[in-house]
């Protein structure tokens, strides 16, 4: 079984079994491919170089829209303009964090620098946001319901399996954030 992240003499460390690392790697890769899916081939290289994307659209997929939300509540035009200027860089920074976390899964014991820990927390958060969309978590009651499923013997269909996976990533992220808080407090 995985051990919660903790802050100690080595910094932030955690422990994951091979099966848990495979599971996480799969989840991280899924989110990476979601974020990479729309990269076009025939685009203006200069625009790409400076991070512009004039062909960008609001994502049709809800999970992707949650990762890349509109920046204005009631202004689709303003939100689209913002996407043209910034979405590429948000995608790239997310992919960078997800890849870094996936690369760190090469052994059971994880020892994280503060930067590693930040990237890990961002990556786990994105994984949870995507799983939550797939599980249709819309409000606190839905979240409570999913959270109540803790017993792996309950995993009888895709939804209950996803719920257990979601709860595992939630637990892992919570322990990581607590360890990051402890590291902050130790420094100040």
């Amino acid at each position: 079984m995985a051990k919660a992240f903790k802050y100690g003499l080595k910094g932030i460390s955690g422990y994951l079994e091979p099966a848990e690392r495979d599971l996480l790697r799969g989840l991280l890769d899924d989110v990476i491919s979601m974020l990479e899916s729309d990269v076009r081939e025939n685009e203006d290289p200069l625009a790409a170089l400076i991070g512009l994307d004039m062909d960008v659209k609001q994502p049709g997929d809800r999970a992707l829209l949650r990762l890349l939300p509109n920046v204005m509540k009631d202004d689709d035009g303003g939100s689209l303009e913002f996407r043209q200027l910034t979405e590429r860089s948000v995608r790239e920074s997310k992919i960078g964090a997800l890849r870094a976390a996936a690369l760190g899964l090469d052994k059971n014991e994880l020892v994280l620098t503060p930067d590693d820990a930040t990237r890990w927390s961002m990556a786990l958060n994105d994984v949870r946001l995507v799983l939550a969309e797939r599980l249709d978590i819309r409000d606190e009651a839905d979240a409570e319901h999913i959270h109540s499923m803790q017993d792996w013997s309950q995993a009888e269909d895709v939804e209950s399996y996803l719920a257990l996976v979601y709860n595992f990533t939630t637990w892992l992220q919570e322990s990581l954030v607590q360890a990051m808080m402890a590291a902050r407090q130790a420094k100040s």
């Binding site: 939300p69 860089s89 948000v90 997310k94 961002m122």
Partner: peptide, 12 residues
Amino acid sequence: AVAMHGYGLWAT
């Protein structure tokens, strides 16, 4: 907002 979206927070 760009930074918050990077962290996965819902910012407008």
